[in-house]
């Protein structure tokens, strides 16, 4: 680990000013991903600006009935918050499905959105990786990739985004707000993560030096009936090999509104808009759910060893939406 300077910021303008446009500086939140990456040598910052004490730790209702979550709210506080659990239960479930109790106590909302892939090649400096070292090649395409992307990947990178929280936020049309030296900005989560293309090292639409200040959840009555399911290779404390956030408003057997997002299938949380389009206005049956999943997954391009993810994701769509339908009928 390279030695580095450390500054603790006390207000947002101060934090942004401290970081400036220094490409070798990083904001430090909970540190659960950044410090780990510094230990493996993937990140070698010269300066850390500690933003944990910024006054961004609130969760408040917005005037229109949405929710605003500050960037330094811990994962634990987000998942425990009564309004999150009442209005966006899938978000609480997604957060609780991630990491461990200790890590959720440390990790922040802002940091969660910026966490890096857990691809074993990305975190190992001895192996080629286009995301870590542009132009060095992707080791996973021909190598170990059974937990890599089936959607939206390119030959340049097949890594997946590891977040659970982000999957639920994506389903609920969350908007990321940030601050730069030039003032505030915002980005819908749907546009926040950049397509992989030929530049997998460019991951988000954040301007250089920008500090995430929070996430805004628009009002979404459908979210009150939502769930998150995560499948992984042990029962807890592991990253997903497939996950789904779903919300469903079904009346008289007809889908009025539906939200579906997938995790562990792409370089970003994957909003299943095609599936939603196919389902809306149609019957809430297992056959319809499967057909909608197939419509979304028609674009899937599995690698040699991860075709099971297509099946898994499809099965999760059917299982979760069926469950929500049964709950609505009760």
């Amino acid at each position: 680990m390279r030695d580095f300077g450390y500054q603790r910021a006390h207000d947002v303008p101060g934090a942004v000013a401290l970081l400036g446009a220094d490409p070798d500086a990083r904001y430090l939140g909970g540190g659960t991903n950044l410090v780990d990456l510094m230990k493996t040598g993937v990140e070698r910052p010269a300066l850390l600006v500690d933003v944990r004490e910024l006054p961004l730790d609130g969760i408040e209702s917005t005037d229109d009935g949405g929710l605003r979550v500050g960037a330094t709210v811990t994962n634990s506080d987000l998942a425990a918050h009564p309004e999150v659990r009442r209005r966006y239960p899938a978000l609480a479930e997604a957060v609780l499905a991630g990491a461990s109790g200790q890590l959720r106590n440390m990790a922040t909302v802002g940091g969660n959105l910026l966490q890096r892939t857990r691809c074993g090649y990305f975190t190992d400096l001895s192996k080629p990786c286009n995301k870590r070292t542009p132009g060095s090649g992707c080791s996973a395409v021909e190598g170990e990739h059974h937990n890599h992307a089936i959607l939206g990947a390119t030959a340049h990178c097949v890594a997946i985004h590891p977040s659970d929280m982000g999957v639920a936020l994506t389903a609920f049309d969350a908007v990321v707000t940030y601050e730069t030296v030039d003032g505030p900005g915002q980005s819908p989560l749907a546009e926040f993560y950049l397509p992989v293309g030929e530049t997998p090292h460019l991951e988000t639409a954040l301007p250089p030096g920008a500090l995430i200040t929070g996430v805004t959840l628009p009002p979404a009555p459908v979210a009150a009936r939502s769930r998150y399911r995560k499948v992984r290779e042990r029962a807890s404390y592991a990253f997903a090999i497939g996950s789904i956030a779903g919300a469903l408003d079904v009346r008289d057997g007809v889908v009025r509104e539906v939200r579906v997002a997938f995790g562990a299938v792409a370089s970003r949380p994957w909003r299943a808009r095609e599936a939603e389009r196919v389902l809306t206005g149609g019957p809430a049956t297992a056959e319809a759910f499967a057909a909608a999943a197939d419509a979304e997954l028609a674009a899937a391009e599995p690698l040699a060893d991860n075709a099971y993810k297509v099946t898994l994701t499809r099965n999760l769509v059917v299982a979760l939406l069926t469950e929500l339908t049964e709950e609505a009928a009760r």
């Binding site: 430090l28 659960t32 410090v35 944990r52 109790g101 890590l103 106590n105 440390m106």
Partner: peptide
């Protein structure tokens, strides 16, 4: 009062 992993917690922070 909350549990945390001290290996990812910088002492200075």
């Amino acid at each position: 009062g909350r549990r945390a992993v001290s290996c990812l917690q910088l002492a200075v922070a």
